[in-house]
Design a protein around this nucleic acid. Structure first.
Length: 729
DNA sequence: GTATGGAGCATGTTA
DNA sequence: TGCTCCATAC
């Protein structure tokens, strides 16, 4: 332990060893925030000031919680099992499972993810005949989440006009449905926990006495409800240790309120304020650029990063005539970097919006460079996994109408819309769940209707899985429900079958972890039963996004998802007015400043080398746009910049590079268009996957050339010549 | 139930 | 431009 302290700088040491007061740690990018957080916990425990039981540590993401957990178990020899370390939602889930009666919930309540929630709203719309045009389901979803994140129930939401009054009504109706089905959405986990604590003094006292130390990561991202929850949980004696960076607050759009940092100083005062400004990540020039940029924001708590490292290289700037040229430049540069020994996983291409990844991906694909795009479908969100989970959910909780509707006719078993309407009418009339009605329609032993068959299937599944270990139960359900066979028979179903198998594996490792007593960060480890715990786990930890394309892949992601990461080399791309800063943000309150913080996050991801690129024109949504360089480039001192191309007129005295906006892109970029494709209509060809066929049609030229091939076994297909490796037969 | 086509739409995203 | 959603057709 002492040597852990020795490695800290004076500010870090001060923060780690603060006496038992509340404190706000302003931790700049790369200043060792996680280290301070974990070392403080380790210090508190190893010096005997706190027991593991007395510690509550909250993060936003599972990843952060996991990292904290891992680092802690490396630092401590004592059992960390009693500690409450997890995400806000994970901890609230744990709390509600323990106090489900006080919370007015069934023990097996199900957690709705965003998809499930939207589905529930749409179902409710049908039942109530709500005009989806006037009240889009999406909009209501935001409305509800927004209200809950403010800590507001329907009767507390102020509605001044007809439209919002109706939304409040729908919010109330939504709550009824959730309650009836035993469903809890993400925001509800927090709100419900908050209310239980607020209303139950005994419970509140209990937890206040228990958690003497509360630590919060990424405090700038907390919303109103999370802050109120914290206030309830922290008694007079509690030491609240909040770590955050107002300059990295980039989630106001989803309810985060940086104001919590100022508020904290008043509400929890008097507090200690410590700034961690020494950066261990980047070279000097990178930090200088970031500091200069962020100074343009007026509402800051104030902080200036510095480093003991060298100044390093200047930031390299490249102005491309078009987005295609920008991508080409990046590909060429990355190639050189990799040849010079930089690991591709240490190179990141960042962009403001996901749509920008396409051009980059296209160029990388053509250059046969492995890359990985972050974001997109996560494992537990895939349709086939959702279906399997729905069977399990119905087994765990028969009132879960959402789960039933998802699977009653999947795989198809002849239960159509009409039958369903009948069931729903009956259910509504009797105030019963769909399962209740379905089973009543199908007296045991009586063959006949398709609903009866379904009801018997579920009964059989329930009987067969009762008492089985979790992974075996999951496996049985996947097989006996017909899901496996259904996907197995599908032409492109192999991946889905694999995912179902993967689900069994996930259940297996979940069960093992729970059994081994390894601390589970999502706090579902102490369950009413293994199945319910696993279902909660699936909702709370949606899993990884798509895997890498090849190994040693280049990293592509939005600036938002780059937060918290670092790379040897970073390309910040698309630095154009309208894109970054984004048009839509400019009218928002605090919008431009949030965009600047986003740029600040982007810059501070780089350790050694930073490229800033932009295109003077790009096609977006099928339209060509001519853009002006981002204001953010103007805000970086010119002395830190090294132009790899001529700087545009609005940034320097040099003339912009000569180019003709009307000329085709290929000519402008100086690259020769690919020569003749070498294929003719009527020619016989071979494709690696589709076999032999004949070219029947063609269109486009150069990189866009496509041919239509009539394959012997696969039929007609359009293929892009650039991608499909077609060979003459 | 699936295949097709047209309309509408297009910041960011964790749990 | 390219996708997602829904309605319509078979």
């Amino acid at each position: 332990m002492p040597d852990l302290l020795e490695q800290l700088n004076p500010e870090q040491l001060a923060a780690v060893t603060l006496p038992r007061t509340s404190a706000l740690i302003l931790a700049g990018a790369g200043s060792g925030k996680t280290r301070v957080l974990t070392t403080r916990i380790a210090w508190l425990i190893s010096t005997g000031q706190a027991s593991p039981m007395g510690i509550l540590a909250v993060t936003f993401t599972n990843k952060a919680a996991r990292e904290m957990q891992v680092r802690l178990s490396a630092m401590l020899t004592v059992n960390t099992r009693g500690m409450w370390i997890g995400t806000f939602h994970g901890l609230c889930n744990r709390f509600l499972r323990a106090h489900f009666r006080d919370a007015g919930l069934p023990q097996v309540f199900q957690i709705l993810d965003t998809q499930d929630q939207l589905g529930l709203i749409k179902r409710m719309y049908k039942a109530l005949k709500v005009d989806d045009e006037r009240y889009p389901a999406r909009a209501l979803q935001y409305f509800i989440a927004g209200a809950k994140e403010q800590g507001l129930r329907p009767n507390q939401v102020e509605a001044f006009d007809e439209h919002s009054r109706r939304q409040v009504e729908l919010y109330a109706a939504y709550e009824d449905v959730c309650q009836r089905e035993g469903a809890v959405d993400f925001a509800e986990l927090l709100l419900r926990s908050y209310e239980v604590l607020a209303r139950n003094q005994g419970l509140r006292e209990h937890y206040r006495n228990r958690f003497k130390y509360i630590l919060i990561d990424e405090f700038q991202d907390t919303n109103v409800l999370q802050y109120k929850w914290l206030q309830l949980l922290a008694g007079k004696e509690t030491s609240v240790f909040a770590v955050g960076d107002d300059d990295q607050s980039i989630y106001a759009f989803r309810g985060a309120d940086v104001g919590n940092m100022q508020r904290f100083q008043q509400d929890f005062g008097p507090i200690e304020l410590i700034k961690l400004e020494q950066n261990y990540r980047s070279h000097g020039n990178i930090l200088d650029a970031a500091n200069a940029l962020i100074k343009h924001n007026l509402t800051r708590l104030g902080k200036n990063l510095w480093t003991r490292e060298h100044q390093g290289e200047p930031l390299r700037v490249y102005a491309a005539p078009t987005d295609v040229d920008e991508a080409a430049f990046i590909v060429d540069t990355v190639k050189e970097l990799v040849e010079s020994g930089v690991n591709p996983t240490q190179i990141a291409l960042l962009y403001r919006s996901n749509a920008q990844s396409r051009v980059l991906e296209h160029a990388l694909f053509n250059a046969a460079m492995p890359y990985r795009v972050y974001g997109g479908m996560r494992f537990f969100e895939r349709a086939e996994v959702k279906h399997a989970l729905a069977y399990l959910r119905l087994l765990a909780n028969p009132d879960d109408d959402g789960a039933l509707l998802r699977i009653i006719n999947f795989p198809p078993r002849g239960i159509g819309a009409r039958t369903l309407e009948g069931l729903q009418a009956q259910a509504q009339a009797g105030g019963a769940s769909l399962w209740h009605v379905a089973r009543a329609n199908a007296p045991a032993g009586k063959a006949g209707s398709s609903v009866a068959t379904f009801a018997r299937l579920i009964e059989t599944l329930r009987a067969a899985t009762t008492g089985l270990p979790l992974p075996e139960a999951v496996e049985h359900v996947i097989a006996a429900s017909g899901l496996q066979a259904h996907y197995g028979a599908e032409r492109d179903g192999q991946e889905r079958v694999d995912n179902l198998r993967e689900l069994v594996a996930a259940a297996d490792s979940f069960a093992r972890e729970a059994q081994s007593g390894a601390p589970s960060i999502d706090e579902t480890g102490a369950p009413p039963d293994a199945l319910t715990a696993f279902l909660a786990h699936a909702a709370l930890e949606a899993g990884d996004t798509q895997a890498a394309v090849g190994r040693d892949a280049l990293q592509l992601m939005t600036v938002h998802s780059a937060k918290g990461l670092e790379f040897h080399t970073v390309f910040v791309t698309g630095l154009e007015e309208g894109l970054f800063p984004h048009d839509n943000s400019l009218n928002e309150l605090d919008g431009p400043e949030e965009e600047r913080r986003l740029m600040y996050v982007a810059l501070t991801r780089a350790r050694r080398r930073l490229y800033l690129t932009f295109a003077q024109s790009r096609s977006l949504h099928g339209q060509f746009r001519y853009n002006v360089v981002s204001r953010f480039l103007d805000e970086i001192p010119p002395a830190l910049l090294h132009w790899l191309s001529a700087a545009p007129a609005n940034l320097s005295a040099e003339p912009p590079p000569a180019w003709d906006p009307d000329a085709p892109a290929k000519e402008r970029s100086g690259r020769t268009p690919p020569s003749d494709t070498g294929f003719r209509i009527g020619q016989n060809v071979v494709h690696a996957k589709f076999g032999t066929g004949v070219i029947v049609n063609a269109e486009g030229r150069g990189a866009d050339a496509r041919v239509q091939v009539n394959f012997r076994n696969e039929g007609l297909k359009w293929l892009a010549l650039e991608f499909a490796r077609l060979e003459a037969a």
